[in-house]
Amino acid sequence: MAEHFEITDAMRALIGKETPPWTYEVTTTSVRAFARGVGYTDPVYFDVEAARRAGYRNLPAPPTYLGTPVFIPGSSSDTFSTPTAGVPRLDHGLPGLLDGGVETEYLADICAGDALTAVTRLRDLQTRASKALGTMLIATVETTFTNAATGAVVAVQRGQAIYY
């Protein structure tokens, strides 16, 4: 928690910077694992035949699931599984982290068998005063997911990380 926190020029210089591309895999096993994690009972997310009958080419990615980032020790976050290699570091020094919100825009179907290439960029930095948490830093981050085989953008996800 910070009483006084200011966005530095070094932090502001990261706005617009992109991460290197990273592969997110959508597989039959990863779709089932996500669907189990949410608690789905709809067979379309588990049974390939049911998915085909419902008009999909394979198990569809459940809403909000955009694949599982390939995990490489030393290049991925052990806690969040997301890529860390070459990712610009925002040195804000604030210890607390909250998820503020998230928006996903779909431009095409995502199904098991797809490999997605994700590139994340920092869109914006703002500060906001909170009675409970002091001065908070709000980072808006945007990730573009491209189907690696077709080159088409299939989804864009925007999220707000709150540091305090």
Binding site: A33, F34, G37, V38, T68, T79, F80, S81
Partner: peptide, 12 residues
């Protein structure tokens, strides 16, 4: 725990 495994978010 199932959601952590399915999503990859292992925040304790």
């Amino acid at each position: 725990v199932k959601y952590a495994a399915g999503s990859g978010d292992f925040n304790p």
